[in-house]
Design a binder for these strands. Structure first.
Length: 285
DNA sequence: AGGGCAACCTGCGCGC
DNA sequence: TGCGCGCAGGTTGCCC
């Protein structure tokens, strides 16, 4: 048991993909009657325009790139949404009172409401013309997705050779490969037997290949397992993920490495908690 | 121009 | 009991 309090989500690519899959059938075809914004900073750009433009528009579908959700609306509009740490959507019936972490309400003509909740208020949504989403600050520098045809070995090897900083920071940056966050990066490095502070450009070809294969395998596997539920991440139907049962290092500092029995160590890398095995994860400098 | 890091937020757990 | 502090982490923006 990792935590007892059920109040945090940690959406990385597999969790966001499970949100997309579960949420899309619940909202597709609905028409906005009114948007209410209760905490202005969630909306990137002009909030009044955001509400005005979306009124009377129909939801055509929900897509995703990296950790970004893309709500497709009629008349060529898209809402780019990032859940950051704890954001989540819930489709509810008309309700009388909203919790204080409910920041945006999408009210539909059928009387249902899509509520955006976010305790830490880190999440953002931005209205753009469909087709211009890759010009936004968040999406324009994203690398390819793990498991996609553009995430090929020669590309990955070439990208790593351009970075002198450590491999953990490099993988978290989203520009070499997108969608990985703190949990999956630690797991991927453990599986690849690479120390998080290894210099990205110093990795031998053999380790780069192992790392590439691991990234390409673990993300689709985590999607298949419904994502990772550390505290309370659930999909739009309230279902928890199962990948936490496969975690080898995240949340296990002080416990024994499942490969060699050495006690796992926790350090800070780029301000992020980082757990690894000091014995079987090799440092390359 | 790559890289380092504070800032953005709130709730929880811990030490005193 | 209660207060203060550190921690949690994705992204942005600023500075070197």
């Amino acid at each position: 048991m990792i935590g007892t309090k059920l109040n945090k989500t940690m959406p990385e690519l597999p969790e966001v993909e499970n949100v997309r899959r579960s949420l899309e059938p619940l909202i597709k075809g609905k028409v906005v009657s009114k948007i209410e914004v209760r905490y202005d900073k969630i909306i990137d750009g002009d909030t009044v325009r955001f509400c005005q433009v979306l009124k009377d528009k129909k939801i055509l579908g929900l897509s995703r790139y990296g950790k970004y959700l893309l709500f497709r609306f009629s008349n060529g509009w898209t809402v780019v949404s990032h859940l950051r740490m704890e954001g989540h959507f819930r489709l509810v019936d008309k309700s009388k009172s909203w919790s204080k972490s409910t920041h945006v309400l999408w009210k539909f003509t059928d009387e249902s409401v899509l509520a955006y909740l976010d305790v830490r208020k880190f999440g953002r949504m931005q209205l753009v013309k469909t087709g211009t989403e890759f010009e936004t600050t968040g999406l324009q520098k994203l690398g390819p997705e793990p498991g996609s045809s553009s995430f090929i070995f020669s590309y990955f090897e070439n990208e790593l050779s351009r970075h002198r900083r450590n491999i953990k920071s490099t993988l978290l940056a989203q520009s070499v490969v997108c969608g990985l966050g703190n949990i999956y990066v630690d797991e991927i490095l453990w599986r690849s037997r690479i120390h998080p502070l290894s210099c990205a450009k110093s990795l031998p070809k053999k380790q780069i290949r192992t790392l590439w294969q691991t990234i390409d395998a673990i993300i689709p596997l985590a999607i298949q397992k419904g994502g990772t539920t550390i505290r309370s991440y659930t999909d739009a139907n309230g279902n928890a993920g199962q990948f936490q049962n496969f975690l080898a290092v995240y949340g296990r500092s002080g416990q024994k490495c499942r490969r060699c029995g050495t006690v796992l160590v926790k350090i800070k890398v780029q301000g992020r908690g980082t757990t690894f095995c000091p014995h079987c994860q090799e440092v390359f400098r």
